[in-house]
């Protein structure tokens, strides 16, 4: 399915994601990696920051309500993957992000902003395997 190239909106949206990363660092001194925040809600717990993490996740989930209230409707959301593919994808995304200590936000935004070589390696690796996966499923399968 073709999608429209939206450089300005994506740049502004990216800026808002960056703003939220700066907010979390300024307020709590923590990295805004969603995989890390979400996985630390699962046991075993290692610190007492559970309520704050839950509040951040609640904000993420409720953002569409705010967006719809202001914009008068929701943007497009097209999930084309079928049930079994969604389960496999979810398992891989969840496992891989915790195993590799980060996801697109933790490594891709926060890590790269800190000029972390580890995050650069992680970002290049997940970009590469994701690009290969899409190539295989869309052009070879």
């Amino acid at each position: 399915m073709a999608t429209e190239f939206t450089p300005i909106a994506s740049l502004i949206g990216g800026g808002l994601i960056g703003l939220s990363a700066v907010m979390l660092m300024a307020l709590e001194g923590r990295i805004a990696g969603i995989a890390g925040i979400l996985s630390r809600l699962l046991p075993p717990h290692r610190d007492g920051a559970f309520a704050g993490r839950l509040a951040l996740v609640a904000g993420l989930v409720m953002a569409p309500l705010l967006y719809a209230a202001v914009a008068g409707g929701l943007p497009a959301q097209r999930i084309e993957a079928s049930g079994i593919v969604l389960v496999a994808a979810g398992l891989l995304v969840g496992f891989g992000s915790v195993w590799g200590n980060g996801c697109t936000s933790g490594h891709g935004i926060c890590g790269l902003s800190r000029l972390s070589p580890r995050s650069l390696v992680a970002t290049l690796v997940f970009m590469a395997t994701a690009i290969v996966t899409v190539f295989v499923t869309r052009h070879l399968w």
């Binding site: 999930i79 993957a81 593919v85 969604l86 496999a88 994808a89 979810g90 398992l91 891989l92 995304v93 969840g94 496992f95 891989g96 992000s97 915790v98 195993w99 590799g100 200590n101 980060g102 996801c103 697109t104 490594h107 390696v121 992680a122 970002t123 690796v125 997940f126 970009m127 590469a128 395997t129 994701a130 690009i131 290969v132 996966t133 899409v134 499923t137």
Partner: peptide
């Protein structure tokens, strides 16, 4: 970790 993550990301 990121290699596994990327495969899942590319699937869905």
């Amino acid at each position: 970790g990121p290699a596994i993550f990327g495969i899942g990301w590319g699937l869905a």
